[in-house]
Amino acid sequence: MTTETTMKKSEATRRVRRALLFVLSLLLVAGVWEIYKTVGPEAGGKIFGWKLLPRSNNHAMPHVWDMLTRYSRPELRGSDRKIWSVVLAGAWFSFRLALVGFAIGATLGLGLSILMARFKIAERGILPYLVVSQTVPLIALAPLVVSWGGKLHIAGWTWPRWMSAAVLGAFLAFFPVAVGALKGLTSAPSASLELMDSYAASWWQTLRKLRFPAAIPFIVPSLKLAASASVIGVVVAEISTGLKGGIGRLIIEYAREATSDPAKVFTAVFGAAVLGLAMSGFVTLADMYMMRNRPKEASA
């Protein structure tokens, strides 16, 4: 009992420390940003002839406090809607799309990994295509998928426009899951597989009782990748197709006002970042739940 309580305690201190480190790193980034603004060239600069140094003026790089205070001011002059609530609503909209994309992608990735683990031929036949699929630029794919919106009818159900963004999120999310889960499903030690053989267990029983639980430590990190990938997919889809309601649309709209209101676009960019963090946080919770009874030495 005592060992368990000490373990819980150290777990808690570790979590607090991690949170503090995160805040510290945010402050550090803000600090570097401000330092660059004071020492960096106003009009940008060249290193070895390449134009690498960004412009440090207030249009290109607004002050950190300007970006933060921008949240409490109205979105549009004369409107009484504060920008934080607009960004929050946009992030929430995109979050739900990303969640749908993540769910579709994770399911698809898991399904493919099981298929590949079951049939060696499937692995040889499918895996190269999966790799190729990830080299297709999302920007090129987005208009095609979005054009299904409102036009595609499947058994009385009309494909909604938002579904296209979710599908593009899924398109990026399934890949890490498929690859990670395949690695995990084939990671069970041969002695354990032999044990299941000695019980005359079927392939499905072996999958459920051995291969899948053994794959969890591989699947969890791949889900984290998938979570942020689904956010990227959704935001890029929103940006490249102009889908209304989400954070991606806010980013392009606000970017147009960059000259008059440079801090504005950053409010939306941070909104997208928080969105990504929320998705990974969501997966981290799932991670903690799934790994709660596993040996903890790795992270100690």
Binding site: P189, A191, S192, L195, M196, Y199, A200, A201, Q205, K209, L210, P213, I216, N293, R294, P295
Partner: peptide, 23 residues
């Protein structure tokens, strides 16, 4: 076997139940 080959995600009791589950 020489290595106990227990499943780390199962409790001791659940490990022992494994062959019975499969039966």
């Amino acid at each position: 076997f020489q290595q106990s080959g227990l499943f780390e995600w199962r409790t001791v009791a659940k490990n022992i139940e494994l062959p019975l589950e499969l039966k």
